[in-house]
Structure formats: C-alpha cells, structure tokens
Amino acid sequence: MQGTDQRAYDRGTTIFSPDGRLYQVEYAREAVKQGAPVVGVRGEDSVVLAAHAAERSALAVDGDAEKVATVDGHVAVAGAGHAADTRQLVDLARQRAQQERVRYGERAPVAELGTVVADHLQEYTQTGGARPYGTALLVAGHDGAPGLVEIDPSGATREWRADAVGRNASVAREQFEDDYEEELSADGALALALAGLDAAVDDLSVADVDATLVTDDGHERVEEQRLRAVRGS
C-alpha cells in the first residue's frame, strides 16, 4: 500500500507528499537542468542575456536557434528547459507589456512583468489536470534602472546581479561569484556573461552564443564580432 501511496504523490500535481514536496514541480526543475544554459549579468546601466544556442543540424536555417526573445522595447527574456513552454510564457509577458502601453502609455516595470508570469506559473502547481511549466526564465530589462529577475517553475521569483539557469548553472554562478564587480560597463557585463557560459559549456564557440544587451535606450542583439572582441578571441 505504501508504494501505491507514493505513486499517488508522484503523479499528482496538486498533492503534497508527507515530507511537503510537490514531485511534479521538482521534475519540472529537472527539465530545466537539461536545457542549454542561459546567463544574465546586470551592469551599471545595462543588462546582458546570453544563451548557448548551438544548431542541432547543419540543415537548420541560420538564426532559427535564437533563444533570447523580445518582450517589449525595454525587456528581453530567455529560458532554459522546454522551448515550447518558454514560448507560451513569452507571449503572456508580451500581452501584459502591450496592455500597460495601451492603458497607461508607459513601459511596464520589469518586476511587474516578472510577477505576472510567475503568478501564471504558480497556478499550474495547484491546478488539477495540468502540469507545471518545464522552463525557468531570466527576465532582463531597464525601466529607469537595470533589472534581472529569475522565475522558477514553481512561480518563485528573485532578483539577481548575475544568474544562470539550465545545464551546469551552478558552475556558471560560481564563476559570477568569483568575478562579479559593481558598476560593470556594458562590455564588462558581456565579458562576464561569456565567462559564465564558458564555465558551463565545454569548448564554447562565440558563433553559438545568442546575446542581447538591454539599456535605457532599448535592446539590441549583440553581433558575433563584438562578442569576440570582449572575449579577447
């Protein structure tokens, strides 16, 4: 009987185990750990998102592996885990960002966008017949000041100076803890982001990095030439 009870906790999205765990949320976190790494670094006046986006096949169309998505002119999002789940959450964030512009004529605060997405994720940890989203997001934006928010599959959020999600994220964070400095320039934040990816990915090629720089003026995709320059290779 004990084995049957254990399987019930294992299958049920909304059922706590006797030791207070939601197994399906933990499985979602495991899915995140299998995803290609994504890092974010907050500088003095900018935020960098960088993702490992290696093509799976030589037949794939160039640029189809972009992992950093535009939410609004001042916000970008990248995720590790199930790409389709990430896409759904990006669409949700885009809708909220546009609602803010239509209703108030202003940019949505980065933290507020993060909370909207996190609330949606949390609902899927307590809804029967559904599963948690198998993705973790880094939300980077500038709404008067640079911000970087991580959103966990459970719906928990936290602001970071530098963070990583996905495969070998803990290794990238150790790199950040060793090398992060206050008041990083844009190029300094880019260099640190690449160092984090270097730590997480064996034989990292700059050609396989999708990076976006967010400032008060908006965001731009960072070209390979600039990545090579700040990396020193």
Score class of each variant (00 low, 15 high):
residue 69 A to Q: 04
residue 101 R to N: 03
residue 89 L to M: 05
residue 86 T to M: 11
residue 37 P to G: 05
residue 170 S to N: 12
residue 182 E to L: 09
residue 112 E to P: 04
residue 14 T to Y: 12
residue 51 A to E: 05
residue 183 E to G: 10
residue 213 L to H: 00
residue 38 V to F: 11
residue 220 E to P: 00
residue 197 L to P: 03
residue 144 G to V: 05
residue 114 G to H: 03
residue 117 V to I: 14
residue 139 V to R: 02
residue 3 G to A: 14
residue 52 H to T: 01
residue 110 V to S: 02
residue 112 E to C: 04
residue 43 G to N: 05
residue 48 V to L: 11
residue 193 A to M: 05
residue 140 A to P: 06
residue 207 A to V: 09
residue 164 A to G: 09
residue 53 A to N: 07
residue 206 V to E: 10
residue 53 A to H: 06
residue 67 K to S: 00
residue 27 Y to Q: 11
residue 15 I to Q: 10
residue 30 E to Q: 14
residue 206 V to I: 15
residue 217 D to I: 04
residue 156 A to H: 12
residue 101 R to S: 04
residue 115 T to E: 09
residue 102 V to R: 12
residue 215 T to M: 10
residue 137 L to F: 06
residue 113 L to F: 02
residue 209 V to N: 00
residue 39 V to T: 11
residue 13 T to D: 02
residue 70 T to P: 01
residue 18 P to I: 10
residue 207 A to P: 08
residue 205 S to V: 13
residue 141 G to T: 00
residue 175 Q to A: 13
residue 168 N to A: 14
residue 12 G to I: 06
residue 22 L to S: 11
residue 115 T to Q: 09
residue 176 F to K: 03
residue 188 G to C: 08
residue 79 G to T: 00
residue 57 S to T: 15
residue 165 V to I: 15
residue 146 P to A: 15
residue 33 K to G: 10
residue 66 E to F: 12
residue 79 G to R: 03
residue 230 V to R: 03
residue 161 R to M: 10
residue 108 A to I: 05
residue 85 D to L: 01
residue 38 V to T: 07
residue 215 T to C: 09
residue 223 E to R: 15
residue 39 V to E: 06
residue 37 P to S: 01
residue 163 D to L: 05
residue 47 V to S: 06
residue 69 A to C: 09
residue 102 V to C: 08
residue 64 D to W: 06
residue 142 H to C: 03
residue 16 F to A: 11
residue 150 E to K: 07
residue 60 A to T: 13
residue 46 S to L: 01
residue 74 H to W: 08
residue 168 N to P: 08
residue 108 A to N: 00
residue 75 V to Y: 04
residue 94 R to F: 05
residue 179 D to V: 11
residue 87 R to M: 07
residue 55 E to G: 05
residue 26 E to C: 07
residue 65 A to S: 15
residue 217 D to Q: 14
residue 104 Y to Q: 12
residue 68 V to N: 06
residue 69 A to V: 09
residue 70 T to L: 05
residue 14 T to I: 13
residue 81 G to H: 02
residue 215 T to K: 07
residue 47 V to E: 03
residue 103 R to H: 14
residue 62 D to A: 15
residue 25 V to I: 05
residue 4 T to D: 15
residue 136 A to L: 02
residue 161 R to F: 11
residue 4 T to C: 05
residue 177 E to S: 13
residue 200 A to F: 07
residue 154 S to R: 00
residue 191 A to N: 02
